[in-house]
């Protein structure tokens, strides 16, 4: 794992203690560039009841980069990112072990304030799920929840979020219509607006375009490109072209383990592992 030491020292003091553990982490064979680590996962194991779904996942996600997570269905991609905001805790019998550091703070620690964590780590789901409210309220809801905010500023921020998610032009005349009236692609962009309105630091996207049409998908991909200026993005995708198009880094998951992690060009052009190559060339999965 390549990580510039001086960065890790001044930005994330607590990462210093992890230097030793780095030996055990998945090798990244490139890019010693000046990127800061935003999320650092160490030996993450995940269980559905007695069934273990993730095995010793160790990975570093760089700030303001798009990291794509690819792999066949059921390999643990979604399970993996669902630990970053601890959303899995909604369900009985699911538990995560190991360490996930967000700017050096342990996400899985019981002291972690979940509401604060989820404000910092936003999430977009596979199925667009607008709240049963108006378009405006969908975006305003999270803002009101996390900030004390006046009416004018609220309106401004809602507009800004809708513009950044490339939806404003399509909805500006019908902000008081229910969010559920929009098309699937628009709903998904509404969900993105809702997530970015509260100014998160990390945006988790769990197959955000698998349920929508190609035109809307293209819009969302453009959006991801634009959003990485401000956010660290983790994108789970089934679509390898999509991963190749929009991501800077790619992690290949197989059977709950991270087989390979590296720069996207490297993963797609000269993968180090046979399994990765087989998957990318379509020999399985």
């Amino acid at each position: 794992m390549m990580m510039p030491a001086e960065k890790s020292d001044n930005l994330f003091c607590s990462l210093a203690g992890l230097v030793d553990e780095r030996k055990t982490s998945t090798t990244v064979d490139s890019d010693p560039s000046k990127q800061a680590v935003k999320i650092s996962v160490r030996n993450l194991n995940f269980f559905y009841g007695h069934h273990q779904a993730l095995f010793d996942n160790t990975i570093d996600l760089f700030a303001n980069q798009v990291t794509a997570i690819i792999g066949p269905s059921g390999c643990g991609k979604s399970t993996h990112i669902r630990t970053y905001n601890r959303i899995f805790e909604l369900y009985r019998n699911q538990k995560a072990q190991g360490q996930i550091l967000l700017d050096g703070e342990d996400v899985l620690s019981p002291e972690m304030n979940l509401i604060d964590l989820r404000k910092r780590v936003g999430m977009i789901f596979q199925k667009p799920s607008p709240f049963p409210m108006t378009i405006f309220e969908n975006v305003a809801y999270g803002l009101r929840l996390h900030y004390r905010i006046g009416r004018n500023e609220l309106a401004d921020r809602v507009e800004m979020a809708l513009k950044r998610s490339a939806l404003w032009d399509e909805v500006q005349d019908k902000l008081d219509r229910p969010g559920t009236e929009l098309s699937g692609g628009q709903q998904q962009r509404l969900c993105i607006a809702r997530a970015i309105a509260v100014e998160p630091e990390v945006l988790l996207m769990d197959e955000p375009s698998s349920a929508i049409d190609p035109v809307a998908t293209a819009k969302i991909e453009d959006l991801i490109e634009a959003l990485k200026e401000k956010y660290t993005i983790v994108l789970v995708t089934h679509n390898m072209q999509q991963a190749a198009r929009v991501s800077d880094y790619t992690a290949f998951f197989y059977n709950g383990s991270i087989v390979e992690f590296g720069r996207t060009e490297q993963i797609f052009k000269k993968p180090a592992m046979k399994q990765t190559e087989d998957y990318i060339t379509g020999r399985f999965g």
Partner: peptide
């Protein structure tokens, strides 16, 4: 649907 609960919780609600 649970997806609605998840998206609310994921927003920090």
């Amino acid at each position: 649907p649970d997806t609605l609960r998840e998206s609310a919780l994921a927003l920090g609600v």
